[in-house]
Design a protein around this nucleic acid. Structure first.
Lengths: 142, 142
DNA sequence: ATAATTGCAAAAGCTTTGCATGGCC
DNA sequence: GGCCATGCAAAGCTTTTGCAATTAT
């Protein structure tokens, strides 16, 4: 992805355009396995040896609060980040650390309708995310 | 819950019965909002001022590996623990930190069947967990 | 008896914070 | 120019680790 299109994404989110922000966003988009902050920092360091860890965390928080990036919950210590903002679910592989996106509008529709008919007492649903746990049949890490 | 029944649970899981383990398991069962390790430690300290933090973490790991307790992923820093081992999902309230269990066998059946018909390429599903995000209508924290 | 568990304290992550410097608009 | 973002280093939290002492079986 070109720096131009990334700049545009930042501008559209009313974020000041800085080289660090471009680098972080590009890293998340390139590293497709839902990178940790550390993955991102390592990736950036090639082109950008002086970037500060704190800066990356601040940028990530920033992106999250603007809805540009989402946090992905995992069982392990560190938070992972996801630049795909369309509604989707996740496939978790318990063998590798791989997490893949899973899109299925048909199922989302079904679940929406299901919970309209079958309300949960005392709870107003805003979103439903599936954690689909299992194993990839190949062994690549993409 | 009586110490007797808790001892039985430990014995059934082939775990050595110690006062610390009884206290931890009792705490998880009593604190119903999916407690953090720290919640558990605070709870235990009343009756048991000298319990070591490291011990509680070791006990929790132990319980998790025996399947007595499950870890619950959240957006926040700390892991939470769940003593309910039957298949269930979670309601996450984004306002409070409340997490409630949600059981629905009918829906589980449907999802099982759905994914038998509609396989995910390259992925073998072992379990599906719903994260149902929203808001409780009351304001209690139970 | 012996093997596992505990307590303690230190250390190891990951993430946040404060503040002076520098850069974007 | 003014304000916001960055770099740096320190500190905060949660969790893990190692080891000697203690306890369960």
């Amino acid at each position: 992805m070109k720096a131009d299109s990334i700049s545009k994404i930042l501008k559209d989110s009313a974020l000041r355009i800085t080289p660090q922000r471009i680098a972080v966003l590009e890293a998340i988009l390139m590293l497709n396995n839902h990178p940790t902050a550390d993955n991102i920092i390592q990736y950036i360091k090639n082109a950008y040896p002086n970037i500060a860890i704190g800066t990356v965390y601040k940028i990530l928080d920033n992106f999250v609060s603007k809805g540009l990036v989402n946090k992905v919950k995992t069982d392990s210590d560190s938070m992972r980040y996801d630049a795909v903002t369309e509604k989707h679910h996740h496939l978790y592989c318990y063998e590798s650390d791989r997490i893949e996106d899973y899109f299925n509008e048909e199922l989302d529709q079904y679940l929406n309708n299901y919970f309209i008919k079958r309300k949960i007492y005392n709870f107003k649903i805003e979103d439903i995310k599936l954690q689909i746990i299992g194993k990839f049949s190949d062994n690549t890490n993409k």
